[in-house]
Design a protein around this nucleic acid. Sequence first.
DNA 1: AGCACGCCGACT
DNA 2: GTCGGCGTGCTC
Length: 737
Amino acid sequence: MANSVPVLVPLPLDAPFDYALPADLEVVPGDLVEVPFGPRQVIGAVWDAPSTRAAGAPVPAARLKPIQRRLDAPPLRPPLRRLIEHVAAVTLAPLGAALKLVLSVPAALEPPPPKVGLVSAEGAGATAGLSAARRKVLAALGDRRPRRPAEIARLAGVGAAVVQAMARAGLLVPLPLPERADDALLAEPSPVALSPAQAEAARALCDGLAGGPLAGGYGLTLIEGVPGAGKTEVYLEAVAATLAAGRQALILLPEIALTAQLLERFERHFGRPPAAWHSELGAAGRRRSWRRIALGQEPIVIGARSALFLPFPELGLIVVDEEHDASFKQEDGVPYHGRDLAVARARLEGCPAILVSATPALETAWRMGRIEGAAGSEGAGKTLLLPARHGGSALPDIRLIDLRRDRPPRGGWLAPSLRAALEATLAAGEQALLFLNRRGFAPLTLCRACGHRLRCPNCSAWLVTHRLRHRLVCHHCGYGRAELDHCPSCGTVDGLVACGPGVERLAEEVRGLWPAARVALLTSDQPAGPGAVAALLRAMRDHELDLLIGTQIIAKGHHFPALTLVGVVDGDLGLSGGDLRAAERQFQLLYQVAGRAGRAHPGRVLIQTHLPDHPVMQALAAGDKERFYAEELAERRDAGMPPFGRLAALIVSGRDLPAVRRFAALLAREAPAVPGVRVLGPAPAPLALLRGRYRQRLLVIAAPEIDLPALLRPWVKGRRLPGDLRLQVDVDPYSFL
DNA sequence: AGCACGCCGACT
DNA sequence: GTCGGCGTGCTC
C-alpha cells in the first residue's frame, strides 16, 4: 500500500483525488479504475502525477481510500488525456466534467458479457410427455448449434415464452455463441474515378500534409469547393492513405448530415461499413462501438461532434466535413466547439486535420489566409480549392425576387414569378425544391378580437402551430398543448388567426395550386419513424416526387439528379435578430440550398427577399463568395468582433428574476478591469425566459491577444451562487440565442 | 453530480 | 412532539 495515485472522476471537480494503490494492483496513467467516492463507487481514470503539488495540503496517506479494481479496458492514451485538460482549460469546465465527455458510455468500460446461445440438453431426444410446442423446439435444434433464444423461437414457430420456460426447465442449456468475425472486408472496395482536379487535390492532400498521413505529423488543410465539386472523394483518398498506414480515421459531420446515404457511400468505397457515432445510436450500439473503437477494431468512424472524445488507440486523421456548420458548437453542458477541438486533438495526436466546406466559416477562411487582403495567421495550413466538376459556373443561376414589388397574392407566400417558375418546372416533368427554414404551420397565432398572442408559458417565445399534429408547440423548451378553438385570454371562439408561413402551410398552398403534383414535406420532426426519412429522400432521388418542401435538413449533402429549381421562400429569415453571425450563416445556408439545384443539369435558384440590397443577397445573386467574405471580414474588423476580438457570454439564470438581476449586476461590478477588455451588460439574454428560468447576459469583448479563459477564471470560478441561480460561461459563443 | 448534515413548518 | 423541506458543503 505504498503509493498514492491521482484519480480523476467524471464529476464536476477541478482536480484528481488521491487514492491508495493496493499492493496487488498495478496501474498506469490513463487506466480506468473503480474507486470509492464518498458513499458510492465511481469509475474514474488514473491521472498523471502533478508536476507540482496543487495548492492545498495533500490528504494524509492514512486517510486515502484504496482503488478497488482496474477495469478491463485499454487505458486512455496521453493525447486524449491532454485533450480533456485542454477542454477544461478553454471552456472553464471542471476537469472531471471534461473527463465525463470521454466516459460517456460506462457500460463500455466492462467487457461485454459473453454471448450465450441455447442448445438442447443431452438426452433430450426423449420427447415423451412434451407439449407440441416444446417438441417443435427440439426438432428445430437438431444440429446442436447454439442459437439465440429469439432465433430459436422464430425457427420453431413458437413464442419466446416457450423457449424461456424450456431453458428454465433444463431442456435447453446455455452454450457460448461463436464471436462474429466481422473484421474482414465484407465487399470489394470500389475505387472511385477522380477527375484530374480531384486527383491533383488528393495528391496535394496526401503528399503535402506535414509529410502526408503516411508519415504522420500535424497539419491543417482546408478543402473548399462548390457543392458537387467532389470534396468527399478527395478526402476519402486521405482516409484510404490513413487506413493503409494502419491508423484510424475520424470523420466529423453535423448531426443532420449523418445520413444512411453517406454511410453507404463509405461502405461502397471501403468495402465495410464505417462505425457511426451519433445521438440516435442506442445503448447497445454505443457500448459495442465504443469498445471496438478503443480496441482498434474500427478503422473508420463517422460521427457527430461527440465522436471527438472516442478513445482511438492510434488516430491518424480527423476530417471535419461541413466545418462551417453551427451545430459543431455544443451549447449546453461543457460548451465546446467541435471544429476547434478537432484541430486541437489532431495537434495532440500528431495527425493531420482536414476541414471541408463549400462555404468555410469566416474564422476558418481568415485563419487559413483564404480571404483577399486579409493576413490570416501565418503557417496555419493550406487551402485546396476544388473547381466545379463540369467547368462553367460555380453555382446555378441565382436570382432574387423582390417581395416588395413581386407580391404573393393574399393568403399566399409564393410570389407570382416563383409560382410561374414552379408551374413551368412541374409542366416540364422536372423536380423542384422549396426551402423554408420554419417548422410547423405558422410561427405565431393571435386573437382577432383582443390581439392576444399565444405564448409559451415557460419561454419568451411564440407557440408554433403544428396543424398536422393538431398541437401548439414551443420550439425552445418542448412545451406542447392541443390546438385551441378559442382565445385563452378573451374567450372569443374561432377568432384565432395564424400569422406567417411554416412549411406545413406552404405545403397547403402548393397542394392547392398543383393538386396533381407529388409533394412531400421534410423537416427534422417530419416524417417520423426510422427509415421514413431515408425512404423519402430515396423517393426524391428516384423522381417519385415532383416537389419537396423542407427546412434546413434538406440543405446538406443530398443529391437529387432531376432537381432543376430551388425556391427560397424567405431569404431574410435568418437575417433578423442581432446575431453577430447572422449574415454569415444565412449566406452559408442559402449557398448550400442553392447547391442542391443543377448538380447534374443546369438549374436555377429563386430567392424571395424583402432586402434585395442586403450584402448576403447581393453576393448570392452575383455568385460572388469572395466579395461577401471580404466585406463581412471588414465589418468584423471595424467592430472588433471575431476573429479580430474574442467574446465570452456569461449567462445568469434562475426562476426569480430579481435575484437573477442582482447577481448579474454583482458580477458586472466585479468584472476585471483590464485594458483591451470590455464588459457589456447585464441585459436580458436573447431568450430572456427559457424553460421557466429568467436569463441575464454579460458579454465580454476582449482584444485578440488577451488570454480569455485566464481572464475569466478568477472572476467566475468557484463562485457561490445563491438559491437556484446558475452561471453559464460560454467562451467564444456561437449562437447568440 | 450525489448525498449527508442541518435548521424551520404541518402532521400522525 | 416528529417528518421533511431543500440550502450548503464534502467527496481522496
